[in-house]
């Protein structure tokens, strides 16, 4: 593949940090590609991959309903476009959502990733934490995990591969073209997760062209 187009869903959250992490990774891998902020349906058809950044999942979901943006992205993901959901993005992609304190939430979501996610599992902001984690990409790699009011993945369905656990809590998964983490790789120097995501984009591109 000589050129690709990565989108960052630009409704709410740390959009710029994700844009620069992707740019940094593209440069490091010596690829050619562009990163676009996506907040309407105009450029969706041209995308080779999409990142849903961290932020507030209720806000991102509510504002993504406008102009049926979420629905159109859903179709594109079902067609095989690689997608990377981070924290709020993970919540948005998942099938079943509970809040640790409130219980089941009726928030809007995309219903694509066969996992049960527990919001705010690791506690409030004071309990947000950093820790080294090990993640299967596809070799076992050690990297810094930044967990900010993070969810955990409580259960996974059959087609879901567990990439990382922390003290028996699942924190990263992959289901075919969907990659999701409950921590924030965009807040560290390490671009390993973005490089892995770009390799997913490349594989998908090679298969379809």
């Amino acid at each position: 593949m000589n050129y690709f187009n990565v989108g960052v869903l630009s409704i709410q959250g740390d959009i710029a940090e994700n844009v620069s992490a992707v740019q940094k990774s593209i440069k490091k891998l010596n690829y050619r590609g562009i990163v676009n902020e996506i907040n309407n349906d105009k450029h969706i058809s041209k995308l080779d991959g999409l990142i849903i950044p961290g932020g507030e999942s209720t806000t991102i979901a509510k504002l993504s309903m406008i102009d049926k943006l979420l629905k159109k992205l859903q179709n594109k993901i079902n067609d095989g476009m690689p997608i990377f959901g981070i924290c709020a993005g993970l919540i948005l992609l998942s099938k079943y959502i509970n809040d640790k304190k409130i219980g089941p939430t009726n928030q809007l979501h995309m219903d694509l990733l066969d996992i049960e996610v527990e919001r705010n599992y690791f506690g409030r902001q004071k309990d947000s934490f950093e820790s080294y984690i090990e993640i299967l990409l596809p070799k076992m790699i050690k990297t810094k995990g930044i967990f900010i009011r993070s969810p955990r993945i409580k259960k996974v369905g059959n087609g879901v591969q567990i990439l990382s656990k922390l003290n028996n809590n699942i924190i990263a998964v992959r289901q075919n073209n969907i990659l999701a983490t409950s921590f924030h790789p965009e807040l560290t120097h390490d671009t390993i997760l973005y490089e892995y995501f770009i390799s997913m984009i490349q594989q998908h591109h090679d298969q379809t062209h």
Partner: peptide, 21 residues
């Protein structure tokens, strides 16, 4: 590994999650 709370990355990172909101 050690688990660390209250670092500057975590505190400022929290604010980064509120952006555009």
């Amino acid at each position: 590994d050690d688990v660390v709370c209250g670092t500057t990355t975590l505190k400022r990172g929290f604010a980064h999650m509120l952006k555009n909101g």
